[in-house]
């Protein structure tokens, strides 16, 4: 039996199980904490920093997706300071690569675009980076567009943890980080790729898409990918 603990989220007392993360407990209780790199069914890595929350007694912000709950933990999810940091984080994600929603396959179905809208990001206060990036079209069925990649690593984890192929990794550091398939081999030449398409479905943005779709046409079946894990856990 897992140990039961009581925590507070925005003042409300909530029962949770030890081992759950703050984000999992919040979601199970309909408390909103934004998240981008987190995806149900995958390990949590704390890459995007959108889920930062305040925990009383802790002098710094903690990522809700990787912080396990403890008895008596008190979490604040929506202070004005957090709201302002979330906006900044979203704006920085938007300036890092080239997000031109008007010509993006995922427009209207994109988690980054939706988060920006939900947080009232009507414009970006920082200078855009305008990097020159490539689009890998070598795979017969799928495309990887680095211009739209937010380096959340959901594809990396999906391929490694669910499909068991581990085609993807993130190479380089800082602003030069890039998603790579099989040690820099083009995706179409990656011998370990089974072409299952799960990475594409897990990708929150227009960075990965099926070929053949136009602007706004690519919708994804993320829940189906998450379900695979819960079905296996249930076995």
């Amino acid at each position: 039996m897992t140990e039961k603990v009581k925590i507070r989220i925005d003042g409300e007392v909530i029962a949770a199980s030890a081992g759950q993360t703050i984000l999992e407990v919040a979601r199970a209780n309909n408390k909103y904490i934004p998240a981008l790199c987190y995806m149900e069914g995958l390990s949590a890595v704390g890459a995007c920093r959108l889920c930062m929350v305040e925990v009383s007694g802790v002098g710094r912000l903690l990522p809700a997706c990787t912080t396990p709950v403890q008895e008596g933990l008190a979490v604040a999810t929506s202070s004005p300071q957090l709201q302002s940091y979330r906006k900044i984080t979203l704006e920085l994600l938007l300036v890092e690569r080239n997000h031109v929603c008007a010509v993006c396959v995922s427009s209207g179905h994109c988690e980054l675009q939706a988060l920006a809208q939900d947080h009232g990001v009507t414009h970006v206060r920082y200078p855009y980076n305008y990097p020159r990036l490539t689009v890998d079209t070598t795979h017969p069925r799928y495309v990887l567009d680095h211009n739209r990649c937010v380096l959340c690593s959901r594809c990396v984890r999906t391929c490694a943890e669910i499909e068991g192929a581990h085609v993807w990794d993130i190479a380089g550091r800082g602003i030069r980080s890039r998603l790579v398939s099989e040690l820099q081999r083009p995706w179409g030449e990656a011998t370990t790729c089974t072409s299952c398409g799960k990475c594409v479905q897990a990708c929150p943005t227009g960075a990965m898409a099926e070929k053949g779709w136009g602007v706004e046409e690519m919708t994804k079946k993320r829940a189906a990918v998450s379900r695979l894990t819960s079905m296996r856990e249930g076995q």
Binding site: N98, V100, R132
Partner: peptide, 19 residues
């Protein structure tokens, strides 16, 4: 008023900016 994405973000015209 910045009207529309080109005025707000640079949008399609900014696709040239890396060149």
């Amino acid at each position: 008023v910045a009207l529309g994405d080109c005025a707000v973000t640079g949008n399609v015209p900014s696709l040239r900016n890396g060149i």
